[in-house]
Every structure is written in structure tokens, then in C-alpha cells.
Simulated assay, not measured.
Amino acid sequence: MDLDDQIRHYFGSDTLNAVPPPALAAGIERMTVDLWLERDRARRFALWTLLYMFDAAPPLDEVFAEAADRDAARNWMDLSARLLPED
């Protein structure tokens, strides 16, 4: 999955700053629906991480049946937290 392609697919723009709030909310909702419909583990993980970046990711235990996928998501959450500036 290419991040730029996913942004265009769900939000209709190459630039998230140009997406109005209602369109952003609608894109997140479509992405959430796709997450629950997706059966491919890698694509499901990619959708979940994108939702996580929008602070809209469902709980790990509900999304990932495999312990390895939940562990990978926790590792990703820890790594992404390190990239955020400290307040």
C-alpha cells in the first residue's frame, strides 16, 4: 500500500491540509469500514496504522486475531510515539 495512494483514495486530495473537516471525517469512516472488511493481514495492518495516525484506530484486540499482529501494532505505536515532539 502506498501512503499517497491511500490519502488520495480516502480523502480525494494529495494534501491533507486541503481536506475540509467533513471530508476528513467521511474518509476516516470509509477507511474504518474497509478495515473491518479487509482479510489480507498486511493490508489490514496498513489500514489500522493509518487510522492510528488519525487517532481513530479501533482497539488492537478487536482488530487483530493473531498475537503477532497485536505485538507488531504495539511496537509500531511505541516507535511512532518516539517521533512525536515532546510538549
Score class of each variant (00 low, 15 high):
residue 44 R to N: 08
residue 8 R to A: 08
residue 80 S to Y: 02
residue 44 R to E: 06
residue 58 P to M: 13
residue 28 I to V: 15
residue 5 D to V: 08
residue 11 F to H: 00
residue 64 F to Y: 13
residue 4 D to Q: 13
residue 77 M to A: 12
residue 78 D to C: 06
residue 22 P to R: 06
residue 30 R to T: 00
residue 44 R to S: 09
residue 57 A to Y: 15
residue 84 L to N: 04
residue 18 A to S: 03
residue 62 E to F: 12
residue 19 V to K: 05
residue 21 P to R: 08
residue 33 V to D: 07
residue 31 M to N: 04
residue 22 P to S: 07
residue 33 V to T: 15
residue 70 R to V: 14
residue 79 L to V: 10
residue 21 P to E: 14
residue 55 D to N: 15
residue 86 E to M: 06
residue 70 R to K: 15
residue 60 L to C: 11
residue 36 W to L: 14
residue 24 L to T: 14
residue 34 D to W: 07
residue 31 M to G: 07
residue 68 A to N: 10
residue 17 N to D: 03
residue 59 P to I: 13
residue 13 S to K: 01
residue 1 M to G: 07
residue 84 L to R: 12
residue 41 R to C: 05
residue 2 D to I: 05
residue 72 A to E: 08
residue 86 E to P: 01
residue 16 L to C: 04
residue 80 S to L: 05
residue 54 F to V: 11
residue 2 D to E: 11
residue 41 R to F: 12
residue 22 P to V: 10
residue 29 E to A: 15
residue 59 P to K: 14
residue 24 L to N: 08
residue 74 R to N: 09
residue 69 D to F: 02
residue 21 P to T: 01
residue 8 R to M: 11
residue 82 R to W: 12
residue 32 T to E: 10
residue 30 R to Y: 02
residue 13 S to A: 12
residue 79 L to G: 05
residue 34 D to Y: 07
residue 87 D to F: 06
residue 26 A to M: 14
residue 34 D to I: 08
residue 15 T to E: 03
residue 83 L to V: 10
residue 63 V to P: 07
residue 4 D to F: 13
residue 61 D to Q: 12
residue 10 Y to N: 00
residue 25 A to G: 05
residue 13 S to Y: 04
residue 23 A to I: 03
residue 79 L to N: 03
residue 56 A to Y: 01
residue 81 A to S: 11
residue 87 D to Y: 02
residue 11 F to D: 00
residue 21 P to C: 07
residue 23 A to R: 12
residue 58 P to W: 10
residue 38 E to L: 13
residue 46 A to W: 02
residue 48 W to C: 05
residue 81 A to G: 08
residue 14 D to W: 07
residue 31 M to P: 05
residue 81 A to C: 06
residue 8 R to D: 06
residue 35 L to A: 06
residue 40 D to V: 09
residue 70 R to Q: 14
residue 56 A to F: 09
residue 54 F to T: 04
residue 33 V to Y: 03
residue 24 L to C: 09
residue 19 V to T: 01
residue 39 R to M: 11
residue 12 G to K: 02
residue 10 Y to P: 00
residue 87 D to R: 03
residue 14 D to I: 01
residue 24 L to M: 15
residue 44 R to P: 04
residue 30 R to F: 02
residue 72 A to F: 06
residue 8 R to N: 03
residue 3 L to H: 10
residue 55 D to G: 11
residue 31 M to S: 05
residue 71 D to L: 12
residue 54 F to K: 13
residue 21 P to S: 09
residue 75 N to R: 14
residue 50 L to S: 06
residue 45 F to S: 14
residue 83 L to C: 07
residue 40 D to C: 05
residue 11 F to V: 01
residue 29 E to P: 01
residue 74 R to D: 11
residue 83 L to N: 01
residue 66 E to L: 15
residue 1 M to E: 00
residue 3 L to P: 01
residue 16 L to N: 01
residue 84 L to V: 04
residue 50 L to T: 13
residue 15 T to D: 08
residue 6 Q to F: 04
residue 37 L to W: 06
residue 10 Y to E: 00
residue 63 V to M: 08
residue 25 A to I: 12
residue 51 L to T: 13
residue 2 D to L: 07
residue 2 D to P: 05
residue 8 R to V: 11
residue 22 P to H: 12
residue 81 A to P: 04
residue 53 M to F: 15
residue 81 A to D: 10
residue 66 E to H: 11
residue 85 P to C: 01
residue 84 L to F: 07
residue 73 A to N: 03
residue 35 L to R: 00
residue 10 Y to M: 04
